[in-house]
Design a binder for these strands. Structure first.
Lengths: 358, 358
DNA sequence: GGGATGATTGTAAACGTTTACAACGAGAAC
DNA sequence: GTTCTCGTTGTAAACGTTTACAATCATCCC
């Protein structure tokens, strides 16, 4: 059974398609009796306006494209839920794409979203400061809002927390607790500008407190092989007493591996995560983490984008508040004198471990 | 700057739009030289085919609609990630909608997805056996695959685990561990056919083992107020020694509340969840749960739908394997004689607590 | 040389809407 | 009675594609 069109409705109601369209869209200036006839025909035929035809004519799809790394990380899932909630109010729908942290998939995804002529985009890209995608969107003048990505120097519309300040906050807190040798486990910094910002703040605060440059281990975002990395780090005599992980998933995996290696958390090593995923408070040990309001972040990104679509020329970047949530994974530094100078260790296993001696 | 169209490309390349279309779609029988000219023009103009125009003409949007309750529950987020992966292979994109467990939002969501003329749908509805939505899709002959929903007697295309068997499995395991008084905490059974199936299996197996009908507490899916419910249950002298929760999120919340009430898990009460969300193994105590392969479930649903879209008339329901994952939240029944007969307790607080004496 | 053949390309209609413009009719104003 | 106005409706073009069909042209065969 062919789907009913406005034409069918018009014939059934004995009017023209123009009138049908007017009634459907609630345009003013149509006789109530006529409208009633049309509505009756709509109900009788089970007519549902074809959004494709409408989009083509109006050059507006009422579609928002969403591109994020993965839904497997609750931080993004929550944000998307928030976005969905936010755009629904404006009568928009969500066209979804996941990049799985791969730049190529990022481009492909955007390409697809643009084909569908989305009215705007909300995205989390690997690196907002070096993104062909964003340049593309800028030149094509397609409205977008970045979620999670720091705006950098480009003044791009962004909704995020102050990642650098948050990273610094973690270091400061660790120092307060007596930690003198710090480390960071991060997804590849080249693939995550936010991890980079967090690292920068962390590193700067460490330096400000007179500490050696923190250890840094970069791992792939997908299926990170933490065991050899951590084993190597904690084989060193100047191993860190506290680890800052660039996200909660990584922190959880790290705690698991440490425990497996017989290293107690927080007895021997404290671990702090980032994101504040809901489940963190139920973990063992409960996860200390920097909480960012993910759902709210999604909602805000949606709101900002709708504003832009509503005509406002440029929307300002939004910085949402973060807060360091304490948890049992974070404790005081174990008793043992600080090491004088930090040595660099050989990375014979080819692992991405860098350690800088200032 | 107006977006380039096939017409612009045609003019630049000095050919007709028909030829441009042929080149874009890789149709046979076009002179390589001509193709080269077109490709050059495409590159020069940054032309990107308008999917809306294409959809209108071809009557195929290459869009798959997805409707699930919420992304805040990792079980759905993972499935959607799997779906995205699955449909991408077939060149489809995902139009997303969340119902937040509300039937009205379900209808609204579907309505929207259909407006965009999605080629097919993957959905998790409240109740597949009583869904106006599904009837609608059936009469409109729109291909769809249900995810998580049991197919019931309707023979609808479904990808799920055997919820009833899984529920029975949990009860049997609890009996093996010496539990004689069972209980179930579930989202409203009327809002979740899968919770209902799990309850049925659980209840049947309990009966088969000669136990009294398990306690049953139904709570709203969103922001369940567990504290009063659990307080009331465990004030009774014949309180259960084991609780089966209809999903992991509920199980986690339950454990939290029990602990807050000073009831030890699993010392006094064992808790078993359902879904097998990844984080469960990191909880404290680690969560015993029925694992269903969510990502795989999403992928499979996508595959089934693509098959259907590829021409296969009816696709068979798929039952994926489940497995009971042990965890520290599940232990042997505490030492204390079983109660003779189970009394019904007053639900003076208006809470939805039912208890049936056979 | 003339017609047939086949490769390549163009023409134009169609998909389902929206909307500028025209048209129509009924009353109002004169 | 004529003209104007206003409310209501219809006509037709346009949005950007795809595709059936026609057209063109070179080549080949007799």
């Amino acid at each position: 059974m062919r789907r009913a069109t406005a034409r069918d409705v018009a014939e059934t109601a004995g009017v023209s398609v123009a009138t049908v369209s007017r009634v459907i869209n609630g345009a003013a200036g149509v006789n109530p009796e006529t409208a009633a006839k049309v509505h009756a025909a709509v109900a009788e035929l089970g007519y549902r306006p074809n959004g494709v035809g409408r989009s083509l004519k109006t050059a507006s799809s009422r579609l928002i494209g969403v591109l994020i790394p993965t839904l497997s990380n609750p931080v993004f899932a929550e944000a998307v839920d928030g976005i969905a909630e936010g755009v629904a109010n404006g009568g928009y729908s969500l066209l979804f794409s996941a990049s799985d942290y791969r730049r190529q998939a990022e481009s492909l995804g955007i390409e697809t979203l643009l084909r569908y002529r989305v009215d705007g985009l909300i995205l989390t890209v690997a690196d907002a400061a070096d993104s062909r995608i964003l340049d593309l969107l800028d030149t094509a003048e397609i409205p977008y809002v970045l979620a999670y990505n720091p705006d950098g120097a480009h003044g791009r519309p962004t909704v995020t927390v102050d990642n650098r300040a948050a990273g610094a906050l973690v270091a400061e807190r660790l120092v307060e607790l007596g930690h003198r040798r710090l480390g960071m486990i991060a997804g590849r910094l080249s693939d995550s500008d936010r991890a980079r910002a967090r690292h920068q703040g962390f590193s700067e605060a460490a330096a400000a407190a007179g500490l050696a440059e923190p250890w840094l281990a970069e791992v792939p975002f997908t299926r990170p092989e933490l065991e050899p990395v951590l084993a190597e780090i904690f084989a060193a005599k100047d191993a860190p007493t506290a680890l800052f992980c660039s996200n909660d998933m990584l922190a959880i995996a790290t705690i698991g591996v440490l425990t497996g290696l017989g290293i107690s958390v927080p007895g021997e090593v404290s671990v702090v995560g980032f994101d504040g995923i809901a489940i963190g408070t139920h973990l063992h040990p409960t996860l200390a983490t920097v909480v960012q309001p993910s759902r709210e972040l999604g909602r805000t990104a949606a709101r900002q984008l709708l504003r832009r679509l509503g005509g406002e020329s440029a929307v300002a970047p939004v910085i949402l508040p973060h807060v360091l949530r304490h948890g049992a994974s974070l404790g005081a530094a174990p008793k043992s004198g600080p090491v004088e100078a930090q040595a660099s260790i050989p990375t014979d296993s080819g692992l991405e471990i860098r350690t800088t001696t200032p």
